[in-house]
Each structure stands twice: as structure tokens, then as C-alpha cells.
């Protein structure tokens, strides 16, 4: 499949689009699960950029970094979901807007 290689700028642009899709998802959705998924989307955008640059500079540190990002994303998703579960246990629903104790 390497014959489907596109110019590097395209991959970066694609990564950027994915990243901003994730940002919009984080800001605009009330369901915390979907927020976490949007965060995963952002992580993947970053991974795409890393891998692109690894290919560009023929340096597999990019791959390593992407691998570590995946690991961290997994850990963070786990903890995030644990928080959601705990919040769900307190009141029988979850809504991002409920966490408004810091309202000033």
C-alpha cells in the first residue's frame, strides 16, 4: 500500500482537520463519553502527524513516540471512564455541565 503515498503536506493537513474535529467535539458535546472519544480523536491526529514526520525524516523516533502516545491515551481513557462511572454512581446521570462548582 505504500504506492498510495501522498505528499507529506496532505497528511499534515489531514491530521490538522482531525485534530480540530476533536476539539469541536470536546467543546460542543455534553456527554462525557463522547468528550473522551473526541480526545481520542485528537490523540490520533497527533499520531498521524508523528508518523508522517517519521516517514519524512526517515527517523523511527516518531514511531516510538506514537506508540507511547497510544499507551498514554489508553491509560487516560481508563481513568477518565472510571471518573465517569463514579460520577454516574452519585447521581444517576452524567452531564459535563453538572461540574459547575467553580462558577464564579
Amino acid at each position: 500500500m505504500t504506492q498510495w503515498l501522498a505528499p507529506m503536506e496532505s497528511y499534515i493537513a489531514l491530521s490538522a482537520v482531525m485534530f480540530f474535529l476533536g476539539v469541536v467535539g470536546v467543546i460542543a458535546r455534553r456527554n462525557p463519553l463522547i468528550v473522551l472519544m473526541s480526545i481520542e480523536l485528537m490523540f490520533n491526529a497527533a499520531n498521524l502527524a508523528l508518523v508522517t514526520f517519521a516517514k519524512l525524516w526517515a527517523n523511527n523516533t516518531g514511531h516510538i513516540f506514537a506508540f507511547l502516545v497510544i499507551t498514554v491515551a489508553a491509560a487516560e481513557a481508563a481513568i477518565g471512564l472510571a471518573i465517569v462511572v463514579v460520577a454516574f454512581r452519585k447521581q444517576q446521570y452524567v452531564d459535563v455541565d453538572e461540574a459547575s462548582v467553580l462558577k464564579g
Binding site: 500500500m1 505504500t2 501522498a6 490520533n44 508518523v51 517519521a54 516517514k55 506514537a66 506508540f67
Partner: peptide
């Protein structure tokens, strides 16, 4: 995304 990685020679990833 995995397919895209394949196009970028990142098989393991």
C-alpha cells in the same frame, strides 16, 4: 488511520 499508517511504511504501528 491504520491503513494510512500502512501507506506511510509504519507497519508495526
Amino acid at each position: 488511520l491504520a491503513i494510512l499508517y500502512l501507506t506511510l511504511n509504519a507497519e508495526f504501528l
